[in-house]
Design a protein around this nucleic acid. Structure first.
Length: 194
DNA sequence: CACCCGATTATCT
DNA sequence: GATAATCGGGTGT
């Protein structure tokens, strides 16, 4: 499995969100490798009212203004971390792709332990859930996802266009018209149906 | 320093 | 399907 190159992330954010489906998130946790296939994503651009980057750079969102291919991680609702891959083309100042759901591939027993449950379909089918299952916290903020390390993304199968669904993003109140949520249709690990 | 809110989840009914 | 839990960050005083 090859690492995704920096150039992969240096394209339109929405395109990268679409193309990240089928790619593999790898978490090296001490000597263990936890991995999952991306089955659901959402794009957030700087022009987008729903994006954390829309009101300009702050200390918390600085990663989204930094080099593409790095991780933007945020904490929400008092409990949950969420993982984004920084992605944008050269015309834009900021942008990110929220990783919303994974299909567990490797290290499933550790994921169960980190999540405190045994149901495999409830392990990584949500952005906060997958962060907990892979032990992703702010300690990994800004990490380069194009280099082997504690967290990175490698190539996987290409998903046929007919198997990709687009829908409005979840949990936002602004810019609900655009279909910037992508998921693999009929995949049982997607956070929810549309 | 007080206030408000949120790219969610678990746990009810 | 409804709602409580929970707390860091942004904003304004």
């Amino acid at each position: 499995m090859r690492l995704l190159e920096r150039s992969f992330y240096q394209r339109e954010t929405v395109e990268v969100a679409h193309d990240l489906l089928g790619k593999i998130v790898v978490r090296q946790y001490y000597h263990h490798l936890l991995a999952g296939r991306i089955v659901e994503t959402e794009a957030y651009t700087i022009d987008d009212e729903a994006s954390h980057s829309h009101r300009g750079q702050t200390h918390a969102n600085r990663a989204m203004f930094g080099p593409v291919g790095h991780a933007y991680i945020y904490f929400i609702y008092g409990n949950h971390y969420c993982l984004n891959a920084v992605a944008r083309n050269q015309n834009h100042e900021a942008g990110g792709v929220l990783i919303r759901a994974l299909e567990p591939i490797n290290g499933i027993e550790f994921m169960k332990q980190f999540r405190g449950i045994t149901d495999i379909h409830n392990l990584t089918n949500g952005p906060g859930k997958l962060a907990q299952a892979l032990h992703i916290t702010k300690a990994l903020y800004g990490i380069d996802l194009t280099q082997k390390g504690e967290l990175y993304i490698v190539d996987g199968q290409t998903i046929p266009e007919k198997d990709i669904c687009a829908a409005p993003r979840i949990g936002i109140s602004k810019a609900t018209d655009v279909l910037w949520r992508f998921y693999i249709c009929d995949n049982p690990f997607v956070s929810r149906k549309s």
